[in-house]
Computed example of a mutant assay.
Amino acid sequence: MDSLNPDLPPMTVTPAAPRVWKFWGTAVWGLLIFVAMFLGQVGAILYLAWDRGDPLDLMSIQRVGREPAALALSVTMGLPATLAAVWLAIRIKKASFVDYLALHWPSWKQMLFGAIGLVLIVVAWETMSRSLGREATPGFMTDLLKSGRDKGAAVMLLFAFSVAAPMSEEVLARGFLFRGWSASFLRVPGAIILSSLVWTVVHLQYDMYFLAEVFSIGLWFGYMRYRANSLWLTIVLHALNNLTAVVLTMWLGN
């Protein structure tokens, strides 16, 4: 009973439902976000082909898309498309963009811990690659980066693979997908695994060996996203990983 009015029972406050997409909502929106990313990337190639007066057919698109500068622009244009689609999905839920994606800056201890773990994983795969006589970097990526360096597109490629790609992929995988799936029946472990699988699928241009490496790194990123509650942490780790690979490949290339 209400102590101020004995005739009325005390009021109870029903907690508001969390403003987050659950399993299927996250899955559907995740697909739409990926499509938006893809359209942003393809749109850049189509624009370049149109600007040159090339016919907008499959052969022209493939020819333009193999050029280092064009590919760099394509990867870069996937970022605004991804952010726009994610913003729309979160806006519909009337949730905070920053809180939904955990865009909180991590502590230096968390950053250091995440970096050490990433280095150990990369070194382990590097050692395994050497023992198996495999390339540490996929051959087509090595050729692309060397070609870009020789054709004056090094800075564009560096930005595309070390800034735009990590942000796009992390916002989708460890940001939007992890947030929704971790609030579903999957809970945190399932969200880490499934979001890592999706992130791995995005890299299907690699063979199974490199896909296994991508998946293992994705698991670490997912754990750090959960541990630090910070998407910025995984964006930075992802960017550092790509930056190191791009710089070393260009620098070691003859």
Rank of each mutant, 00 (worst) to 15 (best):
W220E: 02
S107L: 06
R187Y: 01
A70D: 06
S168Q: 14
M128H: 10
N5C: 06
A69R: 02
P55S: 14
T82Q: 07
A212K: 04
P80H: 11
G114W: 04
E170W: 09
R66Q: 15
Q205W: 09
M59P: 00
T12R: 08
N254E: 15
L103T: 07
P138I: 07
L240F: 14
V171K: 00
A102E: 15
S162R: 03
L112M: 12
G218C: 06
A102R: 15
P15M: 07
M156H: 03
S195D: 13
I121G: 08
M37P: 00
Q41A: 12
N242Q: 05
A160C: 01
A160N: 01
M1K: 09
W232M: 11
P6C: 01
L79V: 11
K94L: 01
T244R: 02
L118I: 11
A164W: 02
K94W: 00
L88M: 11
G78I: 06
L8R: 09
D150T: 10
L211T: 02
P10N: 10
V198P: 07
R187C: 01
T14P: 05
F178D: 08
M77N: 07
R91Y: 11
R179T: 13
M77R: 05
E170Q: 13
V198E: 10
G253Q: 06
W220V: 02
L46E: 14
W105T: 12
L240T: 05
L56Y: 10
K151H: 10
R149S: 13
G180R: 10
S196P: 06
F185I: 11
M224C: 09
A154C: 03
W29G: 15
G148C: 06
L101D: 07
V236T: 01
E126V: 09
L31K: 09
R225P: 04
V123M: 15
N242T: 01
W181K: 09
I193A: 03
D2E: 11
L144I: 08
A70N: 08
W50N: 11
G65A: 15
L177F: 14
A154I: 06
W50C: 06
L158Q: 05
Y226F: 05
S129Y: 13
D99W: 05
S96L: 07
L39F: 03
R187I: 02
T249W: 05
R187Q: 04
I217M: 13
S3T: 07
S195V: 15
W24A: 11
L31W: 13
M167D: 04
A183T: 15
L252N: 03
A191E: 07
